[in-house]
Design a protein around this nucleic acid. Structure first.
Lengths: 230, 230
DNA sequence: TCCTGCAGTTGAACGTGTTCAACTGCAGGC
DNA sequence: GCCTGCAGTTGAACACGTTCAACTGCAGGA
């Protein structure tokens, strides 16, 4: 028997993700994942630290697919609002089959101790890729942005993406149409806000927001700030 | 033996909340809660549908305490930003002892099926009270707000509160100081944004935001929209 | 040929949240 | 005094996620 570790790992991930899609997260037991993959329970735990880590695998795959789907859709010179709309809708498209256990997704992502948290140091590469996608949307767009805001805009849009995802998870409407509506309404608002930020009258507010974002990104960038009681 | 149902229920809730505070959520087993309360496991499940429902009990108590703590702190005629700051800091004060299982808190709150979701129809009374608190902060403040925005402002501030809470849950800094910093930076920004919204140049954006909030509150108010596949 | 080491694997066992059919004891009719 | 109904209670039993000491089989030296 004894495949290579990589083979068994992928076999388990594929099986688990299929069962998650077919029966949901709770109804999919580790015993069944192992059984359908043709390995023992203990072996499954040898390759994945727990059931949660199998969801992280899905997280990674979704993100890869998101980028693959959205990149061709980003139009050079289009308004930023339009490109943002493409990114957000593409994200919803990709996540769509997994709405059933979005709550599980969130439960795992929210654990500060876990490496799955979008804010954790461990997921810095994944976060950097997500930020890179937003940066691409900004760079390709024809919308004029002040340099100061331009540097922080990807981060701001990424937070927007998180907020939309949060809404999507709790969205019980048919096919999550309400989240689609939210995206369609939100993107023009973001576009207008950015346009407004260039006016002198909004300069003070814009600067304050940038400072706030700076302090937030310090949270994300500097693991040393994670000190706890000695 | 056989106390009244209300007595046993409260005894269990008190015991559970004490154990949660002392040992955290995961380390507190239903068996131990029942044992320390002097009842059987089955009895505990007779009074609470599950471990999650005991956390909902905490959710209710925290909210009551939040209102009690913050109401005296709201200053008549103060800038809205100051009153908002009081509400948010008071919220953090009250939640502070329970930061350890904030993730558990969120896990339960996020389930759309559960009645614990802040967006669910079941928690409408709790949400209404939270909104009422924000309305009070707005009404007591001396900040001038356009009527259209004024009507939606409590909802907007409530969403702000949710966002801050989300940051708090994932905040690993000592005593969650970073969230405190976030609040201190965020409140002036909100104040400035509201001031800016009154200017004619921002009228279009303000209207768009209000329309967006309208569609969001339709989500919350109208349970009929929760239809799923027939 | 035998031994050693190790990557890959096994499944019984543990403690968990949760369920449920059965028990207890009291209030109130007869 | 006896029966009935029911609110309150019980704990064994179930399936689950997770752990871990032990097993397998092969590669590569002696």
């Amino acid at each position: 028997m004894a495949r290579t570790a990589a083979e068994t790992r992928e076999l388990l991930a594929d099986t688990a993700l299929r069962l998650f899609r077919e029966h949901g997260f709770d109804a999919t037991t580790m015993r069944r994942i192992a059984a359908e993959a043709g390995v023992s329970i203990g072996n499954a735990y040898h390759h994945f630290a727990g059931k949660d880590e199998l969801v992280q695998e899905l997280y990674v795959r979704i993100q890869d697919e998101h980028r693959a789907v959205v990149e061709p859709r980003l139009v050079e010179g289009a308004p930023l609002a339009d490109n943002l709309r493409s990114v957000l809708h593409a994200g919803l498209d990709v996540m769509s089959p997994y709405h059933g256990f979005g709550q599980t997704f969130l439960r795992i992502a929210v654990q500060p101790t876990s490496s799955a948290s979008p804010f954790s140091a461990d997921s810095a590469p994944a976060r950097e890729r997500a930020l890179g996608l937003m940066r691409l949307a900004v760079d390709r767009s024809g919308t004029k942005v002040s340099p100061g805001l331009g540097a922080r805009l990807p981060q701001l849009l990424w937070l927007t993406h998180l907020a939309v995802t949060l809404h999507w998870v709790t969205d019980t409407s048919l096919d999550q149409r309400r989240t689609r509506t939210l995206v369609d309404g939100l993107c023009p608002v973001v576009g207008r806000a950015i346009a407004l930020s260039r006016l002198p009258v909004a300069r003070g507010l814009t600067d304050q927001v940038l400072i706030l974002l700076d302090s937030l990104s310090t949270d994300l960038a500097d693991p040393a700030t994670k000190e706890s009681v000695s």
